[in-house]
Amino acid sequence: MEYIKRNRIDKISAKISEEIVKDDLELIRACYQCGTCTGSCPSGRRTALRTRAVIRKALLGLDQVLDDPDIWLCSTCYTCFERCPRQVPVTDIIIKLRNLATQKGRILAPHKSLTHLLIDTGHGVPINDKKWNDLRESYDLDPVPPTVHKYPSAVKEVQTLVKSLGFDKLVEYKPPVNTNSKKDEKPEKKEEKATRKGRKSKIKK
């Protein structure tokens, strides 16, 4: 039975490409499948990512393009786009596909935690250990940089934006105990109040 493979494309639709076209990426339709992108792709040389095939699947509306991990293997180097003879914005299309995959709940677990870091601290790579403050100090710098780390109100601004755009829901962010937001009705609400430091220490481990 293992030799029987009844794979076929039984439905072709424009539903994915239309989403892409909507985002000013109509050049996806200009793709003539030459393979310049795949041959230029440093990821494709070591992974199953075939940028040309990604574009093809998107054009045919195959859901598989959003479900397969391939689109997450692109390092967004833009070499494909620079060389594409039809100027297809391959990288930007992959990014858009990732947006659609995220909406389907296909975001990868480590990426999801990264978004929670951003929402918690305003940094994708935050200072989450005192050694980083010490390291800064050893180079004659203020132990806390003049970024969101220094201005709690700035973190709140980022959080306001995130909520305003519904990003927190998209990435299933559950706030830790949060004194700043009264509207929060999440289970953690019951826990005792934590200062920003308290939240940071939570991230630390």
């Binding site: 393979g35 795949t38 041959g39 792709c41 040389r45 075939r50 040309r52």
Partner: peptide, 13 residues
Amino acid sequence: LRGEDTLLQVPVE
């Protein structure tokens, strides 16, 4: 040479 054999979907080097 680097390219893709688009029929096999495999990078060629």
